[in-house]
Computed example of a mutant assay.
Amino acid sequence: MVNQPSSERLQPRQSAEVSALVVRATQHDGVRPLSEQTVLDVRRLPDEPTPPDATPGVHLVVEDHPGEIDARVLGYAHVERSDPPSAEIVVDPEHRRGGVGGALLQQVLEEYPGVRVWAHGDLVPARKMADAFGLRPVRDLWQMARPLSGEWSELPEVDLPEGFAVRPFQVGQDEQAWLAVNARSFAAHAEQGRMTLTDLTDRINEPWFDPHGFLLVEDHNGDGPPRLAGFHWTKVESSGQGPTSGEVYVVGVDPDYQGRGLGKAVTVLGLRHLRACGLDTATLYVDGDNEPALATYHRLGFERSMVDVMYAVDGA
Rank of each mutant, 00 (worst) to 15 (best):
R81W: 01
D47F: 05
A187M: 02
G242K: 11
G98E: 03
T196A: 02
R96W: 02
H120L: 15
A87D: 01
V124L: 15
F231S: 03
W142S: 15
P147H: 10
G67Q: 02
G67K: 04
H232Y: 08
F209A: 13
V62A: 15
G30Q: 03
S149W: 13
R304M: 07
A276I: 12
G242V: 10
H120A: 10
V108W: 07
E48A: 11
P33G: 01
D314S: 07
H212K: 11
Y297W: 12
Q14V: 13
S245K: 12
G193P: 03
R203M: 01
R136Q: 14
L104R: 14
L262D: 01
R299V: 13
E80W: 12
W233V: 05
E218W: 07
V181T: 09
D131K: 08
N182D: 08
Q192H: 07
V309N: 05
D53H: 02
F209V: 01
G288Q: 11
G261N: 14
S86T: 13
A229T: 06
V217A: 12
H298K: 11
V90M: 08
D308K: 02
P52I: 05
V266F: 13
R44H: 06
G121A: 01
V138H: 00
K128C: 06
G263Q: 05
Y297V: 12
G224D: 10
D131A: 09
A316H: 10
P226Q: 10
D29S: 07
A87K: 03
K235H: 05
V217H: 00
Y76W: 10
T283N: 00
Y249K: 04
Q11K: 11
G259A: 05
D159A: 10
L269P: 01
I89R: 01
M306P: 01
D92Y: 00
E68K: 06
R9W: 02
A190G: 02
L40V: 13
M1A: 10
S239Q: 11
G288W: 09
R32H: 09
D131N: 04
R72Q: 15
T198N: 02
Q258N: 06
D41R: 02
V236W: 07
A20S: 05
V39S: 04
M144R: 08
A77C: 03
H212M: 15
L160F: 06
D70R: 07
A20K: 05
E68V: 05
S238E: 12
D29K: 07
R72S: 06
S35Q: 08
D289F: 10
W152P: 09
R227F: 07
S6I: 09
G288V: 13
Q192D: 12
A190C: 09
S15H: 14
R146T: 14
D202C: 00
S149K: 11
K264C: 02
C277W: 00
S6L: 10
P225Y: 07
E218A: 13
L228M: 06
P207Y: 01
T296A: 15
A20T: 13
P66W: 01
P66A: 04
V124A: 15
S245Q: 11
A87W: 01
A312W: 05
V31K: 03
H273K: 13
A87E: 00
